[in-house]
């Protein structure tokens, strides 16, 4: 109450600054609520009783805790098959992307003959593409349609990521280091593998998250290029489950999987209602967890890379 009880600020803030801070803090509390509440809602709905979820009674905490939805998800064959596919596509694809991008990024960070031409050839693809159909026909003519290979090699290099990696290498590795290595007889290969790669941990983390999440979340590629159901990735199956108006029709995966159950149709409908929330949790957790684990390197790396070097 008196001045003595208050901690003395190092630099006394003006009245307008204090008002600003208060408003700013309040603003961010609202923003955080808007950002986090939908995610929280999905989490608590996924472990609640179907009836409570359907009646809109689940708002702040799980109601009538039940794992019935997860049980339904775990017994959904297509979903797990596609889950395994997605893991394969993501791991293989991101590893390939990472290697190809880092190699090119190092190349572009050095001076060499006709660099301008190569730079142009790469950046140009950002601004003018063949479009969906010509690309589709070209790849189909190459025999890549309906293969697992296309799911691994498509979108292999993102120009944006390449530029971020190039900037990172250019700005974090001093030129002296390269000159010293050359004096010691290092070629580009040796310098790249022995010096650049070991020092690029941060950018490797950033690129893995970028590429990994993009592949995990991609459904459009499979929609265009994959016909066989056994080769479909997770997101395509998820689309059937989630992004449809029908809560339960005969085409609904959960409904048909449970129509033969003893309790029959109503039970299947109830399960389907919560199972959707569980699907979201099960499919989104890997991407979000990857981000949170990598978070430490992530923000720093993105910031260094995104500054123009």
């Amino acid at each position: 109450m008196t001045a003595a009880t208050k901690p003395v600020a190092k630099i006394r803030e003006t009245r307008s600054d204090r008002i600003f801070n208060a408003v700013n803090t309040a603003f961010w509390i609202v923003v955080l609520a808007i950002v986090l509440y939908p995610l929280y809602l999905i989490l608590i709905a996924s472990v609640s009783d179907p009836d409570a979820v359907m009646m809109g009674r689940v708002l702040f905490k799980p109601v009538d805790f039940s794992l019935i939805g997860y049980e339904a998800v775990f017994r959904h064959r297509d979903l797990w098959n596609s889950y395994v596919n997605a893991i394969f596509y993501t791991l293989a694809g991101s590893a390939l992307s990472l290697v190809v991008t880092l190699m090119a990024a190092y190349g572009l960070s050095r001076r060499f003959l006709a660099k301008g031409l190569f730079n142009f050839l790469i950046v140009f693809t950002m601004f003018f593409t063949g479009g969906l159909i010509p690309t589709f026909i070209t790849l189909k003519d190459m025999g890549l349609y309906n293969t697992r290979i296309i799911m691994v090699i498509i979108n292999c290099v993102s120009v944006w990521n390449l530029m971020v990696a190039r900037t990172y290498i250019k700005t974090t590795l001093p030129e002296d280091l390269y000159e010293a290595a050359v004096v010691d007889g290092a070629t580009h290969f040796v310098y790249f593998f022995r010096i650049v790669l070991p020092l690029s941990g941060t950018i490797i983390a950033v690129l893995s998250v970028y590429y990994g999440v993009a592949r995990w979340n991609d459904y459009f590629t499979a929609l265009v290029y994959i016909r066989d159901r056994v080769k479909l990735p997770l997101q395509t199956i998820l689309r059937e489950v989630l992004a449809s108006l029908t809560t339960s029709t005969s085409s609904d995966a959960f409904f048909s999987a449970y129509a033969n159950d003893t309790k029959g149709m109503t039970d299947a409908m109830r399960k389907a209602a919560v199972a959707k929330y569980c699907c979201i949790v099960v499919s989104t957790a890997p991407a979000v967890l990857l981000y949170i684990f990598m978070q430490k390197y992530f923000v720093k790396g993105v910031m260094i890379g995104s500054l123009k070097g």
Binding site: M103, A104, G107, L108, G131, P134, T138, M142, F192
Partner: peptide, 23 residues
């Protein structure tokens, strides 16, 4: 060696961006 390092990326852009331009 720089060109070798750039090669995989260029091959990718050739197949997925420049070939479709012809298409």
């Amino acid at each position: 060696q720089i060109y070798v390092l750039l090669l995989p990326a260029l091959a990718f852009f050739f197949v997925f961006n420049y070939k479709p331009l012809y298409g």
